[in-house]
């Protein structure tokens, strides 16, 4: 099955992506020929059972990991050709990250954490944009606090603000709600959704939670390192059903 780019040009894409870990008997093909584009201005969720390669796909698409073969692009830039240094610069200028946990530097304040990528680049953050972001994530009264003084949900909201602060081409979120209670999770997902819909950002999120996936415009399913299907306008029920179907298929094969 091949992915079709729906209308918009892809903010990030991989072509014939293969990722192999180990060699010989311990060889694992985490990605086995995946081609997919993540359209700009859309919220895409990647789902699949453990070991399906969903995290690997995200890491390779984001330039955190390199492909064994195939190509990965952010906008018009091919990542495989970049040195570690160019890749790092690309990440801080054109990619935002939200991880499952430990998103913030404990020694920096909330405000400093938000502008971390720009500070690393030595560039001046856009004050209006940063200001607007701070209001959107609702942390104006916490700017001088350290991460340890925030709740888990607040910490993830700071992480979202940080990911969006540099107006990146694409934000990658890796199980951003995995460590949160459902209310905090809703808030974070709402933020990611409004970033796409109101601020015209692009978000790619890995998750195993159908409720989280339902916030996306489209869900992409992976199984055994291959693209297994996609679903537009997902709801939690439909996603759950689809997952069960893949599970059954896997058990049957």
């Amino acid at each position: 099955m091949t992915a079709t780019v729906t209308g918009q040009p892809a903010a990030a894409r991989v072509t014939d992506a293969v990722k192999v870990y180990g060699s010989g008997e311990t060889e694992v093909r985490a990605l086995d020929g995946v081609t997919i584009g993540f359209p700009a201005g859309r919220f895409t969720a990647i789902m699949g059972p453990s070991g399906s390669g969903k995290s690997t796909l995200m890491h390779c698409a984001a330039g955190l990991d390199t492909l064994t073969s195939g190509e990965a692009h952010i906008g018009g830039t091919e990542l495989g050709a970049l040195s570690d240094n160019r890749l790092t610069l690309l990440r801080r200028e054109r990619v935002g990250f939200v991880f499952q946990a430990f998103n913030l530097l404990p020694t920096l304040t909330v405000a400093e954490n938000i502008t971390l990528p720009q500070d690393l680049a030595g560039s001046r953050p856009d004050p209006e944009w940063t200001d607007a972001l701070i209001d959107v994530v609702g942390l104006r009264d916490r700017l001088r606090h350290r991460p340890a003084e925030l709740s888990g949900g607040q910490q993830q909201r700071v992480a979202v603000a940080r990911a969006l602060a540099g107006r990146p081409d694409v934000v990658f979120a890796d199980e951003p709600t995995g460590n949160l209670d459902s209310r905090s999770g809703e808030e974070v997902l709402g933020l990611l959704g409004s970033a796409v819909r109101r601020m015209d950002r692009t978000v790619v999120m890995v998750t195993h939670d159908p409720v989280a996936a339902a916030h996306a415009d489209e869900v992409v399913f992976l199984a055994d390192g291959r693209l297994a299907g996609r679903m537009a306008a997902p709801t939690a029920e439909r996603v759950l059903d689809a997952l069960k179907a893949y599970d059954r298929k896997e058990a049957g094969s």
Binding site: L64, D84, T88, R91, F97, F102, L104, L116, P117, L120
Partner: peptide, 16 residues
């Protein structure tokens, strides 16, 4: 270690 990983992923170069 995790902090270093985070810094690197959000754009700290090896040199930095």
């Amino acid at each position: 270690t995790r902090e270093l990983g985070l810094l690197r992923s959000v754009g700290q170069t090896r040199g930095q």
